[in-house]
Design a protein around this nucleic acid. Sequence first.
DNA 1: GAAACTCATTGGTCATACGAATTCAAGAGT
DNA 2: ACTCTTGAATTCGTATGACCAATGAGTTTC
Lengths: 233, 233
Amino acid sequence: MSTPGRGLHGHVLESLGPAITAGEYPPGSVLRTDELAQRFEVSRSVMREAVRVLESMHLVESRRRVGVTVLPTSEWNVYDPQVIRWRLAGADRPRQLRSLTVLRSAVEPVAAGLAAQHATAEECAELTECALGMVATSRGHQLEKYLFHDIAFHRVILNASRNEMFARLGDVVAEVLTGRTHHQVMFWDPDPAAVTLHVKLAEAVRERDAARAEELTREIAVGALQELDILAP
Amino acid sequence: MSTPGRGLHGHVLESLGPAITAGEYPPGSVLRTDELAQRFEVSRSVMREAVRVLESMHLVESRRRVGVTVLPTSEWNVYDPQVIRWRLAGADRPRQLRSLTVLRSAVEPVAAGLAAQHATAEECAELTECALGMVATSRGHQLEKYLFHDIAFHRVILNASRNEMFARLGDVVAEVLTGRTHHQVMFWDPDPAAVTLHVKLAEAVRERDAARAEELTREIAVGALQELDILAP
DNA sequence: GAAACTCATTGGTCATACGAATTCAAGAGT
DNA sequence: ACTCTTGAATTCGTATGACCAATGAGTTTC
């Protein structure tokens, strides 16, 4: 799921990226390329490539005679999967999970409506299969297996929407669900109501009922928001 | 609005990025770093930094003994503002505008609902000001000025939602509105109905009526979708 | 025909040198 | 005392050449 920092510059990024997104170097901090190169024991060329990548994520800005300046959070490319992963691994994971879950609650219902219109027979079958998998693993402390089916389910929905922007949120949803299962709530088996909603959603898509698919996804989203205390219960 | 490729590597990116996103080098194409360096008349160091940035956007993949391979569209970081700009400047701008407008139609209503709950007095004032600006410039071929107020309006809404992910879509919305005004439809004055909806939306936010704000934004979104023939009229 | 081997190719890393922009301070002029 | 100019120090930007390491393809061997 994650990109295992290939090459030396990748290794540097896996260390520097999380440090910056975690606020270890607050916005406005100034780093020097040479110093960083020494600290990480790499050549300046490698460090420069790493800085270029951070720059393309708008995490830092490189200026002559000044150095590498950490940019304010408002500049960061928060949709970059790598940035999302770094932040979810850091201290403000809860805050991050909330932001992303609200995003999900906006996007997924519309995506589900479109999926109901455009899903192929294969996708409908996959969806049903995932839903059944969720049912089968919803009891008895099989959280990992349940998570697997849950992720697959939402991925199929997003892909079936035939909208590129929605489809690319599959990774984000996967990270959110994983983060929720591993580090957040859900110490016990998943909410049976949520499982039922997924089964019904698979039905709605199969029957091409866009409005119902959208509404069911809204209910799933409400559940996810409540889990994070974003909505009043 | 755009990043004017700073440095040599930036200049290379401004040329290579659009070429790749435009499909000039189809997925699977293999480029060689040295050849590219010669073509753009830069050193290998500079070209390597450019390739690293393209790699961080998942546009290409660099492998030993093979070269720099263009990745399939499904891998691209389509939420990267630079990638969005490159694609909007390319041949499939219409397709891109549709994807992004559908995304807007999903996100903005929810954002408006949150904005109604969280907007400060200053933001409410700004919103009203923008709406009035839109009214004032909605007639008499003042498309540029109208666009300015329209962008500002939607930016305020997204920021007032107090959700980081929504706020960062301000740039995307700006690009979509700009693209629509400059290259798409809208040869004449904007739809009066849309202007009215914006005024009402500013009202709803000021009155903290989240449900109405959400609904009004849905209507605005429907109009935007119809303009692109995504919805039946 | 399959497995092991060799080799050419390409990116990966490093070290060094020089160029260019920009900040900061010192100094001249008013 | 203040401003403007000038210069020097600093840091990134670029170029070059060398060598290393992985890997895909062709070749040999069994």
